[in-house]
């Protein structure tokens, strides 16, 4: 299974970005073989509107079945849920730390957005 994580860096040691819609990048990790790809999200960083929706579409297209991010707004949550992507909020400092939390089942699946839009 693949999971997506919001980040400002390009590898597992990079920081987990607290934002979802306006995260600079997404790291998509294949939990089976440990391989990952990094997807640029720069376009949404500067979007006036709809950043959460578009970022959610990016994550869905990446094939990830779960998202781990600091926070997730209402529009993004709606889109992700509609595609069956589960959302997890994490306060981990790095992507690697967040992956560990996920693997160990320490993250609780979010039942809804944990922040307002334009957070």
């Amino acid at each position: 299974m693949k999971i997506a994580l919001s980040t400002s860096g390009s590898d597992l040691s990079a920081g987990l970005d607290t934002r979802f819609g306006r995260a600079p990048k997404f790291l998509v990790l294949d939990l089976e073989n440990g391989e990952f790809e990094v997807i640029d999200n720069q376009q949404n960083l500067n979007a006036a509107q709809g950043a959460g929706i578009q970022s959610a579409e990016t994550v869905i297209r990446s094939g990830a079945r779960a998202l781990v991010s600091g926070h997730c707004g209402p529009n993004a949550f709606r889109v992700l849920s509609s595609a069956g992507v589960r959302v997890y909020n994490s306060d981990a400092a790095t992507v690697a730390e967040a992956v560990e939390q996920f693997k160990q089942g320490k993250l609780k699946e979010a039942g809804g957005a944990d922040v307002q839009g334009h957070w």
Partner: peptide, 10 residues
């Protein structure tokens, strides 16, 4: 404007 998106039938 990402005002409408569809994944699956909803």
């Amino acid at each position: 404007y990402h005002a409408i998106v569809s994944y699956g039938a909803k």
